[in-house]
Computed example of a mutant assay.
Amino acid sequence: MTGARGQAGDDADRFRRAHQERALVEGPEGPVEIDLTESPLRWLASRKDAAGRPFLSSTEVEAGERFRRDFTLAGLSPRLGATWAAPVSGGRPAGSGPDYADVVVAAKQRLDRAIAAVGPDFASLLLDVCGFLKGLEEAERERRWPLRAGKVVLKLALGTLARSYGLGETATGPARAPAIRTWRAPAGDPG
């Protein structure tokens, strides 16, 4: 019986993976594999505006995905079942990477800073769409907004979030750094 169950599990996993668009995205603690098709933000990013340009800019998408990563790492995603893994305690070798609790706390702090930066009106929509992965139609219905209003408000929220993260469409700064003339201390300086 175990063989049949194992085969069914393998088939289900193969089927699930065939219908996902998986990608590695760089997180603060290393690469994380995500399914791009589960995000309403990625769906909206694939849409074009009236002029044929992407509705969301790459920085708006990056800001929303960064928000989503921190939301997930902070442990705020709802669990659909029990966690059967044994709790992990100390005894890890030194230098083996960040402690799980540190990762969760750091993600929660980044998320709190982002929420404070965008304000409560934008934060609730960002939490629903980027965190809880609700569709825009559902978010509009819950807020009793007119159709397609969520799309515009989400774009404004993502723009504000991108600015709070310091993301921009173009690199800014001097064309090149000033030349370094010497590495030596000035004459007469003992230091």
Results as ranks from 00 to 15, higher is better:
residue 62 E to I: 01
residue 62 E to Q: 15
residue 62 E to H: 01
residue 63 A to L: 01
residue 63 A to T: 10
residue 63 A to S: 00
residue 63 A to Y: 03
residue 64 G to H: 03
residue 64 G to I: 03
residue 64 G to E: 03
residue 65 E to M: 04
residue 65 E to G: 01
residue 65 E to N: 00
residue 66 R to K: 11
residue 66 R to D: 00
residue 67 F to A: 07
residue 67 F to W: 10
residue 67 F to T: 10
residue 68 R to Q: 04
residue 68 R to F: 09
residue 68 R to N: 03
residue 69 R to V: 04
residue 69 R to F: 09
residue 69 R to W: 10
residue 70 D to S: 00
residue 70 D to H: 11
residue 71 F to I: 01
residue 71 F to T: 06
residue 71 F to C: 03
residue 71 F to H: 08
residue 71 F to S: 07
residue 72 T to L: 10
residue 72 T to W: 07
residue 72 T to G: 04
residue 72 T to Q: 11
residue 72 T to I: 02
residue 72 T to K: 08
residue 73 L to P: 05
residue 74 A to H: 10
residue 75 G to I: 11
residue 75 G to H: 05
residue 76 L to P: 04
residue 76 L to K: 08
residue 76 L to I: 01
residue 76 L to G: 05
residue 76 L to N: 05
residue 77 S to W: 02
residue 77 S to C: 08
residue 78 P to W: 10
residue 78 P to G: 11
residue 78 P to H: 03
residue 78 P to A: 06
residue 79 R to Y: 07
residue 80 L to I: 12
residue 80 L to C: 10
residue 81 G to Y: 10
residue 81 G to C: 06
residue 81 G to P: 07
residue 81 G to I: 00
residue 82 A to L: 14
residue 82 A to H: 08
residue 82 A to D: 10
residue 83 T to R: 12
residue 83 T to L: 13
residue 83 T to S: 14
residue 83 T to K: 09
residue 84 W to R: 11
residue 84 W to D: 15
residue 84 W to I: 12
residue 85 A to S: 13
residue 85 A to V: 04
residue 86 A to P: 05
residue 86 A to S: 13
residue 86 A to W: 00
residue 87 P to E: 14
residue 87 P to G: 13
residue 88 V to N: 08
residue 88 V to I: 07
residue 88 V to M: 04
residue 89 S to L: 12
residue 89 S to G: 15
residue 90 G to M: 04
residue 90 G to R: 12
residue 90 G to L: 11
residue 90 G to A: 13
residue 91 G to I: 04
residue 93 P to F: 01
residue 93 P to V: 06
residue 94 A to G: 05
residue 94 A to I: 09
residue 95 G to L: 03
residue 96 S to E: 02
residue 96 S to V: 03
residue 96 S to L: 01
residue 96 S to C: 04
residue 96 S to T: 06
residue 96 S to G: 00
residue 97 G to L: 07
residue 97 G to Q: 07
residue 97 G to V: 09
residue 97 G to N: 01
residue 99 D to A: 14
residue 99 D to V: 03
residue 99 D to S: 06
residue 100 Y to L: 14
residue 101 A to F: 02
residue 101 A to L: 13
residue 101 A to K: 05
residue 101 A to C: 08
residue 102 D to M: 00
residue 102 D to Y: 10
residue 102 D to S: 13
residue 102 D to Q: 06
residue 102 D to G: 08
residue 103 V to Q: 05
residue 104 V to Y: 01
residue 104 V to M: 10
residue 104 V to I: 03
residue 105 V to D: 15
residue 105 V to W: 07
residue 105 V to K: 09
residue 105 V to S: 14
residue 106 A to W: 06
residue 106 A to G: 11
residue 106 A to P: 05
residue 106 A to Y: 02
residue 107 A to W: 02
residue 108 K to I: 13
residue 109 Q to H: 05
residue 109 Q to P: 11
residue 109 Q to S: 13
residue 109 Q to V: 14
